[in-house]
C-alpha cells in the first residue's frame, strides 16, 4: 500500500521534502509508519497523525492511497 506523508510543525523530517509517498505492507498501522520513518517510541508519542483533520491513534489502520499529516505543535511564543 502507498501512503503520502506530509509534515507540519517542528518535527524531525527523514527527508527534505514537505511530503512524500511511501510504500508500506498492506494493512499497516500508524505505529508501523512511525517505525518505517525511523521515529523512536519516545518521538512517536509526541507526533500527531491527522487523516482529513481527524487524529489517528498508533493502532489505527492506514488506507491505501490516502494522504496523512504528521504534526507536532510549536511551543514557543
Amino acid at each position: 500500500m502507498k501512503v503520502t506523508v506530509e509534515f507540519m510543525g517542528p518535527i524531525r523530517r527523514p527527508w527534505p521534502e514537505q511530503s512524500k509517498e511511501i510504500e508500506l505492507p498492506d494493512g499497516s498501522k500508524v505505529s508501523a509508519l512511525f517505525s518505517e520513518l525511523g521515529f523512536t517510541e519516545v518521538e512517536s508519542r509526541s507526533i500527531n497523525v491527522l487523516r482529513d483533520g481527524l487524529r489517528l491513534r498508533p493502532f489505527s489502520h492506514l488506507i491505501d492511497g490516502e494522504r496523512i499529516v504528521l504534526m507536532v505543535p510549536a511551543g514557543g511564543g
Binding site: G9, P10, G53, L54, R55, A74, G76
Partner: peptide
C-alpha cells in the same frame, strides 16, 4: 506557537468541538 522560522495557529470555537486535544 512558533519554533525557529515556523508559525503555527489553530482556532477553536466556543462549541469546544473540535478542541486542542482533538488535534494535538
Amino acid at each position: 506557537g512558533v519554533n525557529g522560522s515556523l508559525a503555527m495557529v489553530a482556532a477553536f470555537s466556543g462549541s469546544g468541538k473540535p478542541c486542542f486535544s482533538c488535534a494535538f
